[in-house]
């Protein structure tokens, strides 16, 4: 098991390196001149040249890449071109909303998805199953931004159950925090839980056709025990995969959600940085997202091995 984990960790390293090169290069070739933005409209060509020199933009590609990597390795994410402040410092207050949103969304969609999927598989073919799967299809088909506006209009503007916009940090009280986050969490959970639900159902139904389920029944086990003890764990692999994928897709989903609900998280920081061509921030955030993806993959791989003993060897 430890050898397996070590091997997974080692294979993650080249992936991070490649992602780094790609991230850096994309912005290197992207149009737009940060020097022009910093200098403003009145800057003379000489001044622009000086700004480029200060920031190292006049160096050849590989020197810039090497310097950038070295700084990243030291944990120095760089300095914002726009505000001249350390990016780490800028990111710190933005972490809490985004991480809190992520944890809540994953928790809620895994809970909803797995439980409804199991229920549908247990009642396969019955009315409950068909009802749940209809909901799942609707969940798939509904665009997040549309659902967000419908919910804001219905639950926040008309009924006034939830704030239309705005964010209460955890420091202001956990209930208040959860309340302010309810709508964004719900909107983001719909798609993921619909997906998890369908996968759970089909994985369970597939496992229930296996020979070893017949063996379990032939032992005289009650159907519920067959379902939980013999079918659920083998069916968990595809479900874990989907939960992992849902986590990964969150990172992009938040760019929209945070904007719609006015949450001061990393997603909004990214949008603002792109608008200002604040390259160091964009690079730092992309690297963070990519590292997060890789970590999620790593965790998923390790959970696989825990669930299915055949993977450990």
């Amino acid at each position: 098991m430890w050898a397996y984990i070590a091997q997974r960790v080692l294979t993650s390293i080249p992936v991070i390196l490649i992602v780094g090169v790609v991230t850096f290069s994309l912005l290197y070739v992207a149009p737009g001149d940060p020097a022009a933005i910093i200098g403003g409209d009145e800057a003379s060509p000489e001044q622009l040249e000086q700004i480029r020199h200060q920031l190292g933009f006049d160096q050849p590609y590989h020197i810039q890449l090497g310097r950038w990597f070295l700084r990243m390795l030291k944990g120095d994410l760089g300095t914002s071109i726009f505000s001249k402040r350390e990016i780490r410092e800028l990111m710190a207050p933005r972490l809490q909303p985004t991480i809190s949103l992520g944890i809540q969304v994953i928790f809620l969609s895994a809970l909803l998805g797995v439980s409804t999927g199991m229920l549908a598989a247990w009642k396969a073919g019955a009315r409950l199953d068909r009802g749940l799967m209809l909901f799942a299809v609707l969940g798939f088909a509904t665009p997040g931004f549309w659902l967000a506006f419908i919910l804001i209009w219905g639950l926040a503007v008309n009924l006034r159950w939830f704030p239309v916009i705005g964010y209460s940090p955890i420091g202001d009280g956990i209930i208040k925090h959860l309340h302010s986050m309810f709508l964004p969490v719900l909107v983001n959970s719909v798609l993921a839980s619909a997906f998890i639900s369908r996968i759970t159902r089909s994985a369970m139904l597939e496992v229930l056709r296996e020979d070893y389920i017949r063996t379990a029944r032939a032992k005289g086990l009650a159907e519920f025990r067959v379902f939980i003890r013999h079918a659920f764990r083998p069916a968990a692999i595809p479900v874990i995969t989907v939960i992992g994928a849902a986590m990964a897709s969150l990172a992009t989903g938040f760019v929209v959600t945070e904007r719609v609900f006015g949450i001061p998280g990393l997603g909004r920081m990214l949008v603002e940085a792109i608008a200002r061509r604040d390259y160091p921030i964009i690079q730092a955030l992309l690297m963070s997202v990519a590292t997060f993806y890789i970590l999620v993959n790593l965790v998923v791989d390790i959970v696989y091995a825990y669930v299915d003993p055949r993977i450990r060897y």
Binding site: E210, Y212, R214, T215, P234
Partner: peptide, 15 residues
């Protein structure tokens, strides 16, 4: 009690 044809698939792989 019953024994089945496929020993390779008749036991639960994760237990």
């Amino acid at each position: 009690a019953m024994i089945f044809q496929e020993p390779m698939t008749s036991l639960n792989p994760v237990l």
